[in-house]
């Protein structure tokens, strides 16, 4: 068991390093095309150095606190992952959660925990749509979650003309956010490992047929897995808003890059392990914060997203995926 854990940790590390290497190549290419002289020095001083050190700028507490939303989102994805279910709609859930929390905070003036609850509810409801379609109509969840995410973001974009965005009243929520992420990670880990529904989920992750022979109600398990993962995704969005991480009503630019991608990258790096997902989310946030401190004139602010996408791509290519990972043919 230990051995297996170490091996998958090593593989994750390898994916991370390979992704970073490819990212560095992209940065060098970008510098080559834009700069005339001092290219290598600029890549190092304006690009790589801030990328690797920028995450510390606000101190460890801020880093961990800011990583909390990503951690919660990747927890949701990991939960579904344990059941062999591909949840790729993180972007939509996150956007819905953020919008719900914003509405609650600005219109109703609810306290932060109530906002968080509402955003989780919104995410849970939206997450159960592909769940329901999967169970009732055998819709494949990979495309179901992706399409529902696009729909959610389109709806919010359409609504953006009607709703004015308000930043949350400045509150220092890093410690509660961190506590929420930590407690959720522990709960999910314990739940998956030590409870009957958790074992149901893991057996479903082996294969649907195995689960049916073992007497697992596969439909119900899959539905609740997607619903809970939606709940966590929504909560992640709410948390992100309350921490001041979202600064406009979600629009389409969040569909392909942004929090959805971060959550998925963290879950993939952790191989679906709930505790690992939190650690991976911190690493992902560290990189994305670091990328934000790069010289924007030379390296586009999107460089961080590109690097994270490359890391996720390496994870996928090295067969770290839910259920049907590296099978042949």
């Amino acid at each position: 068991m230990k051995n297996k854990g170490f091996r998958s940790f090593g593989r994750s590390l390898l994916c991370l390093c390979l992704g970073l290497l490819l990212g560095a190549a992209v940065m060098i290419a970008a510098a080559w095309l834009t700069l005339g002289e001092n290219r290598w020095e600029t890549v190092w001083r304006e690009g790589l150095l801030p990328l690797f050190t920028g995450g510390w700028r606000e101190g460890p507490l801020a880093l961990l606190g800011r990583a909390a939303p990503d951690a919660v989102l990747s927890l949701g994805i990991s939960l579904a992952w344990q059941g062999g279910i591909v949840q790729v709609g993180g972007a939509g859930l996150h956007a819905l959660g953020a919008a719900a929390a914003m509405l609650c905070a600005s219109l109703a003036g609810l306290p932060w925990y109530a906002c968080l609850a509402v955003s989780a509810l919104a995410g849970g409801l939206w997450g159960s749509v592909p769940g329901l379609l999967k169970v009732k109509l055998r819709l494949r969840e990979a495309l179901g979650t992706a399409l529902t995410a696009w729909l959610a973001i389109y709806v919010l974009q359409a609504a953006s003309t009607m709703i004015a965005w308000e930043q949350p009243a400045e509150t220092d929520l890093f410690i509660p956010a961190l506590a929420i992420a930590g407690v959720l990670a522990l709960l999910i880990w314990l739940g998956v490992k030590f409870t009957v529904p958790g074992l149901d989920l893991r057996v479903l992750g082996v294969s649907e047929k195995t689960a049916r022979y073992a007497g697992v109600d596969t439909g119900k398990t899959a539905f609740w897995a997607l619903c809970l993962s939606g709940l966590l995704g929504g909560a992640a969005g709410g948390l992100d808003y309350l921490l001041g991480g979202a600064n406009q009503l979600p629009d389409l630019s969040l569909a392909l890059t942004g929090p959805g991608l971060h959550g998925l990258a963290a879950a993939a790096l952790a191989g679906g392990h709930p505790l690992g997902a939190v650690a991976a989310a911190v690493a992902v946030k560290y990189l994305s914060l670091g990328a934000g401190t790069m010289n924007g004139a030379v390296f586009s602010p999107e460089m961080g997203e590109a690097i994270l996408a490359l890391i996720l791509y390496c994870c996928a290519a090295f067969a770290l995926g839910p259920g049907k990972g590296g099978r042949k043919a």
């Binding site: 992706a146 791509y313 994870c315």
Partner: peptide, 21 residues
């Protein structure tokens, strides 16, 4: 087959950010 879904999502993200870069 590996993991074509994750590879696809990753590629889409890379394409979008790459386009902006």
């Amino acid at each position: 087959r590996r993991n074509q879904v994750l590879a696809g999502i990753a590629f889409n993200g890379f394409a979008a950010s790459g386009a902006m870069i």
